[in-house]
Simulated scan of single mutants.
Amino acid sequence: MIILGLVFISQFVISCYCLAMSRSQQTDVISASWWVMSNKTRHEMERNIDCCGLFNHTTLNQDYTCAAICMKTNTCLLCGEKILKHSDEALKILGGVGLFFSFTEILGVWLAMRFRNQKDPRANPSAFL
């Protein structure tokens, strides 16, 4: 029961944070992870998502060329905008599902407290042992 209560609290807090995460916080996380990636990983991501650069095309310098297919037509979108759109949707879904399951854990805690000292499960729960 105590462990279930602790799981509820942690899941509730994480779900609320997912739902409350602002666009600027998402941008900070995406920017930090973009610059940690190797060039090979960036090329692979640009090829898979079909975009160039993070939040502007000026991040592309002479040493770095975009690996996206859209470079041939010169109509590339920014990777940051595509990633932000996807992450915003994913965070809302994760937050909603997390809140749903955290409230079902409340039901589990309540049931555990209600029936923890009952000797016979078919007995009247209102009766004194």
Results as ranks from 00 to 15, higher is better:
residue 59 T to Q: 15
residue 54 L to V: 07
residue 59 T to V: 13
residue 57 H to V: 04
residue 90 A to N: 11
residue 77 L to W: 05
residue 120 D to V: 08
residue 121 P to D: 06
residue 109 V to Q: 02
residue 11 Q to Y: 07
residue 70 C to E: 02
residue 27 T to H: 13
residue 103 F to K: 04
residue 93 I to A: 10
residue 129 L to H: 15
residue 34 W to Q: 01
residue 52 C to S: 01
residue 82 K to Q: 13
residue 100 F to R: 00
residue 38 S to C: 03
residue 115 F to M: 05
residue 13 V to H: 09
residue 31 S to W: 01
residue 60 L to I: 08
residue 125 P to Y: 04
residue 82 K to W: 01
residue 121 P to V: 08
residue 50 D to S: 05
residue 1 M to K: 15
residue 108 G to V: 01
residue 126 S to W: 13
residue 81 E to A: 07
residue 90 A to F: 11
residue 128 F to K: 14
residue 6 L to Y: 05
residue 36 V to E: 10
residue 60 L to Y: 00
residue 54 L to D: 09
residue 76 C to K: 05
residue 78 L to C: 01
residue 58 T to C: 02
residue 28 D to Y: 09
residue 80 G to H: 02
residue 83 I to R: 06
residue 20 A to M: 12
residue 77 L to Q: 15
residue 84 L to A: 14
residue 108 G to E: 01
residue 88 D to W: 09
residue 75 T to R: 11
residue 77 L to R: 15
residue 122 R to W: 13
residue 98 G to A: 06
residue 114 R to C: 09
residue 97 V to I: 10
residue 32 A to P: 00
residue 99 L to R: 03
residue 115 F to V: 00
residue 45 M to C: 07
residue 8 F to N: 05
residue 110 W to H: 09
residue 41 T to R: 12
residue 73 T to N: 12
residue 102 S to F: 04
residue 54 L to T: 07
residue 74 N to Q: 12
residue 32 A to F: 00
residue 77 L to S: 15
residue 45 M to H: 05
residue 8 F to Q: 07
residue 31 S to E: 09
residue 96 G to P: 03
residue 115 F to G: 04
residue 10 S to Y: 08
residue 44 E to G: 04
residue 88 D to G: 13
residue 108 G to D: 00
